[in-house]
Amino acid sequence: MQNYLVRRLLQMIPVFIGITFISFAIVRLSPGDPVATLFPPEMIGRIDQELLREQLGLNDPLPVQYVKMMVNFFNGSLNSFQERRPTSDILFERIPITLLFSATAVILALAIGLPIAVISALRPNSWLDNLFTTAALAGISIPSFWIALVFVLIFTEQLRWLPASGIRPITASGYNLVEMLPYMIMPSVVLSLGIIPSIVRYTRSSMLEVMTQDYVRTARSKGLAEHVVVVRHGLRNALLPVVSLIGAIFPVLIGGMVLVESIFALPGLGRLAVRAAQTRDYPMILTLNMFSAVMVLFSNTVTDLIYQVLDPRIRLK
């Protein structure tokens, strides 16, 4: 177990280094000049531009730039081009909001997706199962940015029930969830729409398989009530593969956050990413790429571990 963990962490290192290389390559091989984007030529002279370039280290040979950026990154002193302060500070200010919305969306998706999946699996190919399958296909086909606007149109413009934007940064004035609740409903629902279909599909097929197992037949022949069999013997075992799905959902959620944060004006990582890309803020782009890659690698590892704790039949070597 411990050996497994150590080996797993060691395996992450080359993948991580590869990711830093690729991120750096993408950023540095792209055409365009961050100095010109930050300060248009009509604002500062050619000489100042050159000075700034020197100052930001853009004139160093590429390998030197790479090493410098990495060293600074791990020192926590890699400064954003635009804000002139450590990228890690900016990152950590924005994590809470992204985390809050991702977590809410996942919980919401599980709360809606699991019952649907169980109902579908208990009556495969029934009209209800077909309805849910169709709805799931519709769910993965809905453009999140479009349904978000439709929600705003209905619930903000027409019914005036929910605010479309205006949430304060959580770090600014403490966490007041009750006050934040109305601001959270639409973004969380939109985010969860994108993940409910995968949860339904996964749980449904896993549930179908589990319900044919010997231990389910044993439980039934013991005379247990059907709902006990379904929940305790069926669903609990069927949820195992779903755990691994939650690890895989993470990158999808980050992508979804980019769009959802733009629409609902949420000060999270997604909007930071759009701005960093638009202003060619190389250090910020690299930091965000590395952070999200680490989160994905980390969540995959944690998923494997949870999997093992939940299923004693699996022994990780």
């Binding site: 993948v15 590869g18 055409p31 999808v252 980050i254 980019v258 890659a293």
Partner: peptide, 22 residues
């Protein structure tokens, strides 16, 4: 390993970066 790397990138984010820059 290459595939792992690609899958570890939140792809939408990666595309956002590349299309903006290139």
């Amino acid at each position: 390993r290459l595939t792992d790397m690609l899958l570890a990138f939140p792809v939408f984010f990666l595309m956002l970066t590349i299309t903006t820059l290139f």
